[in-house]
Amino acid sequence: MENGNMRGREAGGLKKKLVTALGTLVIVVFFIFYMIPFFLVILNSFKQKADILRAPFSFAVKKGYSLENFVEAFTKMNFIRAFGNSLFVTGLSTFFVIVLSAMVAYYFTRAKDKFSTVFFAMMAASMIIPFQAIMIPLVAIYGGQLGILNHRLALVFFHVGFGMSMSVFIYQGFIKSNIPLSLEEAAYLDGCTNFQTFTKVVFPLLKPTTATLVILNAMAYWNDYLLPSLVLSKKELLTLPLSTYMFYGTYSADYGVVMAALVLTIAPLLVMYIFLQNQIISGVVAGAVKS
């Protein structure tokens, strides 16, 4: 009896091992296919045009590897300026959307007045409006009548407006279930004003949600193309996606340089990802599950 049982278990273990091995093989093959595009772009960014056209998959080159493409892409797409613009816009937009949405969510959760009910419902409903249903009047109002397009701060303003709903929604859920009212009451008794209670007691407690929202919003702002393309057209204001687009349009036949430009655009994101991998992954999941 005992022996039979043992053998059964061993057979089961073997089968399980085989299944795991097969699963590993399948997923690794998929993984390689998923990474090939990046591999190709990086490999070819060091090659000359002739070598790229002749054999894009090959390491063997006739004209050698060089950094020339990078130098050319770096100067011609004005990388530093575009990077700076992206940093400026993403940084300010993220800062303001976090601060403003946290305060709004706090008010909505605690005040429980008509104002809160109406605007909370409005924000929740607005989340399903596609950007395409807003962009035309947005351009009409702010471009036509007010003429404030082509300012980076205008883009920040729009980013904050569009990021508001989701951020308020997620903050509200967190405050409602995780911040005890008694804590705030204690702060009032200690002589804190409402504003001090928020900045000194409540906001620090929102930290995990703040981290999630910083990641979600910053990623969306950094990669956004359509909205910035409608707002910014002056060359010196272009963000990274915009200048990549412009650059590709001008140099699309110059493969090596184009590949280098793509690598330059991706590199900051990858460096960031290497350091903040866990935060980004958990932030993205938390954001999706809560909204």
Binding site: M103, V104, F108, I129, G161, F162
Partner: peptide
Amino acid sequence: CTFALPGVLVFVLVVIVPF
């Protein structure tokens, strides 16, 4: 005015008014 208005105003100006 301090907590809700600034954020709600930006939202209204950017999303609701154009819509």
